[in-house]
Amino acid sequence: MLDIFKVIAALFVIGAHCHFLYEYSEVSFRIITNGIFRIAVPFFFCVNGFFLYAVFKNNRMQTWLKRVGILYAIWMLIYFYFWTYLQDFNVLKMMLTLVFGFNHLWYLAALLVGGLVLYQLRKMSNKVLIAAAFLFLLLGIAIQYVGQLHVFSQQPTLDKLLNYPPLHRNFLLFAFPLLSMGYVIRRTNVHTKLSKKLVAILLITSFTLFIAENLIAYYFITGKVILNTYLSYLFLAPMLLIAAFVFKKNANLNSKLLASYSIALYLIHPFIIFLIYRFFTLDSPTLLFVTILVAGIASYLLILLNKKLKYIL
């Protein structure tokens, strides 16, 4: 069930990047695209934190770092043209992109360093890790709001810095908190101790809180501004992870293949969107459908290629 969730999450990321429903309904776009779809990346971080427990326990941190580092380097090279030649040439901008990641590759950069931070703090108690997760995510949210509300509009340089996404959506203020939640879930094995009824209640409650936080920000705080971080990520992402285990199905599915598809879809879809935008003008539902179709085919080819070259996925 977890791998099915991961494929769905990858499709959610594609939907968000295709700005699904943007031109049709502002409220639907806010709830679905900027709401439901955006839980995908926090969920991915939570899943990685869950599996980092085994990495730490079996002393395979060096292997994990090598895998994530090579994956990041390869895909930064694949997208090299897009983050160099298609942007105004600026050495500082290029260096920052190299460090924080181009477009969706920020996830790998944050995962790599966030995993290192969690490794250094792995022996801390569950309470301390959870408290740290809330503290750092809240700090990121605070920076985000100060920037989006232009509190320092009279100081253009500072205002611009506060609105620079990597300042709050990074390894420490975004990745580490969610990795920690996944790690604590695995360390406590709480996913094996909760009843289906309780998990369903907690999942519905956390989902409701997430939508409420999204709409409150939209109507009363930031207006049309799209936010990257919500406090309710720390409730909904872990509950989705737990639900994937509690509501697991005994289906004869190729778990490794599904996992490969989720990674491939995530990594390749911006390339597909760039190509479509270059030759066609499509409304968001059509763009989403075509992107999923082409990205699905491209992902299959990447999976075949990965069997020979390795480290592509």
Results as ranks from 00 to 15, higher is better:
residue 216 I to M: 05
residue 91 V to G: 02
residue 238 P to H: 14
residue 14 I to W: 10
residue 298 A to H: 05
residue 70 I to M: 10
residue 61 M to D: 07
residue 77 L to S: 11
residue 274 F to Q: 11
residue 67 R to C: 08
residue 125 S to P: 08
residue 54 A to F: 13
residue 252 N to M: 09
residue 222 T to L: 15
residue 298 A to M: 10
residue 251 A to L: 15
residue 117 V to D: 02
residue 148 Q to R: 15
residue 72 Y to G: 07
residue 9 A to Y: 10
residue 152 F to A: 04
residue 282 L to K: 08
residue 175 A to D: 00
residue 276 I to L: 15
residue 84 T to D: 03
residue 95 M to R: 04
residue 280 F to C: 04
residue 2 L to Q: 09
residue 125 S to Y: 08
residue 13 V to G: 06
residue 157 T to P: 05
residue 275 L to C: 11
residue 39 I to P: 02
residue 101 G to W: 09
residue 93 K to Y: 06
residue 192 T to G: 07
residue 164 Y to G: 06
residue 149 L to S: 11
residue 204 I to Y: 08
residue 63 T to F: 00
residue 144 Q to V: 07
residue 311 Y to L: 09
residue 34 N to D: 08
residue 254 N to G: 13
residue 275 L to Q: 14
residue 244 A to L: 05
residue 201 I to P: 01
residue 94 M to I: 03
residue 261 Y to N: 00
residue 83 W to R: 02
residue 69 G to F: 12
residue 34 N to A: 03
residue 299 S to W: 12
residue 88 D to A: 12
residue 83 W to E: 10
residue 224 K to C: 00
residue 210 F to E: 03
residue 242 I to V: 15
residue 215 L to P: 00
residue 88 D to N: 13
residue 63 T to L: 06
residue 222 T to F: 09
residue 199 V to G: 02
residue 20 F to W: 14
residue 104 H to F: 10
residue 128 V to H: 13
residue 151 V to Q: 10
residue 172 L to M: 08
residue 312 I to Y: 12
residue 143 I to E: 02
residue 291 T to F: 01
residue 263 I to N: 11
residue 61 M to H: 09
residue 250 N to Y: 03
residue 295 A to E: 14
residue 70 I to N: 07
residue 235 F to D: 08
residue 242 I to F: 00
residue 144 Q to W: 12
residue 155 Q to Y: 14
residue 260 S to D: 15
residue 116 L to Y: 14
residue 126 N to C: 07
residue 270 P to H: 07
residue 273 I to A: 05
residue 1 M to F: 08
residue 297 I to E: 07
residue 242 I to W: 03
